[in-house]
Design a protein around this nucleic acid. Structure first.
Lengths: 162, 162
DNA sequence: CTTGAACCTCTAGTCACTAGAGGTCGTATC
DNA sequence: GATACGACCTCTAGTGACTAGAGGTTCAAG
């Protein structure tokens, strides 16, 4: 009787545990639980012993999530995308806008990184190594007064977010 | 007598408060305190009323830190760079290596972002908007099976770190 | 002496996970 | 049916590099 909770839903559909879902999608077990926690992936049925049991729908949704994350869509944006995917009759202008915004964001980051690349390249080229630190071009470049065009620290995300 | 703690050190050097240091370097007040907390910026003298008082050395060091962060050096790496800058007699090979590594890292990120850009561009181009979501190329692209060449989620940092 | 901006400490929040402790479940084998 | 053991569970805390806020104190101008 207790087992019926699962088997009712699973009678005509293969159900898998979280580890198998992780293996099939390439998303870590912990991350799957995290997605459930933040509401990206609906909570699945549980086994008699309280273990998660996933079906084909979960597999598809998680693959969708992973692909979108791979493309750099932030989780918040993903929420909107998933909501759209669930309403097949709505026009897709919004989806198009979201993708275009993401593309613009990626391009902005590329531009920023290319500027960094140029400066780092210049610095690295002018230091051949071997000189004492006091004359090192790398250290000197960093110690120099800031350029006027540099972005204020608060608005910048060069290190971790390009 | 108490004031002597500061004025001894400040007698022949202009000292400034944290707000002025922030204004001069473009680093936020909170961030300066954070840098002190994590040991990037040495703890300065304090006024009689326990407020931080900075001198020229702090100004220079903070400018150095900021410039390095602008170039995307992670804080941990910055620690090494600062240690090097403090020993002017050592050869600068290490500084050169650090800069070269950072350059390689930036180039790796650029390459990754350019791949994302290409795919997003392809997706966005094939969706003109106006069609119902069921036929939307954006949604379809995300729902599709993952490509075999995609990086596992755990190793990837597309979203926040390019 | 009063005002109010600037300063102080401490805690918690950000993003998208990741890691670990400490315990339970499922199943294959004996 | 007992046992072993990997997979699973929840909960909490940590990551990087800050950022924001509460609640209180100090400084300097008028």
């Amino acid at each position: 009787m207790k087992r019926a909770i699962t088997s009712d839903a699973a009678a005509h559909e293969r159900v898998i545990a979280i580890g198998a879902l992780a293996a099939r999608t390439g998303v870590k077990v912990e991350t799957i639980r995290y997605y459930e926690q933040v509401g990206l992936l609906p909570a699945p049925e549980r086994s008699e012993g309280n273990q998660r049991r996933y079906g084909r729908r979960h597999l598809e949704r998680l693959a969708f999530i992973r692909h979108a994350r791979d493309l750099g869509f932030p989780v918040e944006t993903l929420r909107g995308l998933l909501a759209l995917a669930d309403r097949p009759d709505m026009p897709c202008d919004e989806a198009h806008r979201i993708a275009a915004r993401q593309l613009a964001d990626v391009r902005r980051k590329i531009a920023h990184l290319r500027a960094l690349e140029a400066e780092l390249d210049r610095i690295a080229q002018s230091c051949l190594g071997g000189a004492p630190v006091r004359d090192c071009a790398v250290i000197e470049a960093l110690a120099k007064e800031q350029r006027a065009d540099s972005v204020p620290l608060g608005k910048r995300d060069a290190g971790s977010a390009c």
